[in-house]
């Protein structure tokens, strides 16, 4: 461990003069689950597809397991598993046939049957891929990416379209990958997903990094607590670093009035608040310093 699996330095990518990625730098260690988080069009897929070798970068340095992915080395492709953001199957092939066929492409594949079970498609193993639901298709994507037993797995929005139970199940699979010592780079819109899975996340907006670090460290910045309650049917909200005094006053007043303090909530800002705050800010302050761990 401690070795670097992915290194990205000053990565830039323009499409016909429009810069989709503007100077991204980050590193992913072996065995780490790294999350790229950001709104639509932030440049997540562009970044991941450059790392997968699908697209050529305009500038910057990139290393994946010590290789330049742009070279499209077969040795590198044998060690990497890819779940693309959207990608189809041969419609007339069953799940089992598709996974078994894919396994043949790799030097040391996992057992296809076991891989299908791992992603929870066991019951659909003999169904044709065009008869699968959206979430089931996504699981097949995952099975196809894992059957080669890759060291490094790219997951571009792996759980989009999953029902909550399937999402939990997929998280379980990703946790298993982590336990097996695999490196995972995933993109997601879901904050709870990043929070639950990633050792570190990078929040990206307009092709630039706005924050990076373990999800727990990206938490509260300025006002630590949010205290709110209902008064006359309206929600009143206060922000404070130390809620002790405020709560004492609020409850005291309520007791004095002989009324209940309705709808009282005390909350720490979630990663979601941080994310919204960071990604909704105007473009001009995107260049702010990445917050350190």
């Amino acid at each position: 461990m401690g070795e670097i699996a992915i290194e990205v330095d000053g990565l830039r990518k323009s499409y016909d003069g429009v810069e989709a990625v503007r100077g991204l730098s980050f590193g992913v260690e072996r065995g780490e689950v790294f999350g790229l988080l950001g709104p639509n069009g932030a440049g997540k897929t562009t970044t991941v597809e450059i790392l997968e070798g699908y697209r050529e970068r305009s500038a910057g340095e990139v290393r994946v397991l010590g290789h330049d992915p742009q070279v499209r080395d077969r040795e590198l492709q044998q060690r990497v598993g890819i779940v693309l953001q959207s990608c189809g199957f041969y419609p007339r092939l069953t799940v089992r046939e598709a996974v078994e066929h894919m396994a043949k492409a790799y030097p040391r594949p996992r057992d296809p049957r076991e891989t299908i079970d791992l992603v929870g498609l066991g019951e659909k193993a003999d169904a044709r891929s065009n008869k699968l639901s959206g979430g089931q298709r996504r699981r097949l994507d995952l099975a196809l990416a894992l059957v080669g037993d890759p060291e490094l797995v790219f997951l571009d929005e792996p759980t989009t379209g999953f029902d909550p139970a399937a999402r939990r199940a997929a998280w379980g699979v990703i946790d298993t990958l982590k336990d097996l010592g695999k490196t995972v780079l995933l993109t997601t819109h879901y904050l709870d997903e990043a929070q639950a899975l990633a050792d570190r996340v990078a929040i990206v907006k307009d092709g630039a990094m706005v924050a990076e670090g373990p999800p727990s460290d990206l938490g509260p910045s300025s006002a630590g607590y949010r205290v709110s309650y209902l008064a006359g049917g309206r929600r009143v909200e206060h922000q404070t670093d130390d809620p002790t005094d405020l709560l004492h006053r609020l409850t005291g007043d309520a007791i004095a009035r002989g009324e209940p303090l309705e709808g009282l909530e005390v909350a720490r800002p979630t990663l979601e608040d941080v994310y919204l705050e960071l990604t909704e800010s105007a473009r001009c302050d995107v260049e702010q310093e990445p917050r350190q761990r």
Binding site: Q77, S86, C87, G88, A105, Y106, G148
Partner: peptide, 14 residues
């Protein structure tokens, strides 16, 4: 159109 070619390209199949 289905993205099957793209998937193939991401595998080690020469």
């Amino acid at each position: 159109e289905q993205g099957i070619l793209k998937r193939v390209r991401g595998t080690p199949v020469p």
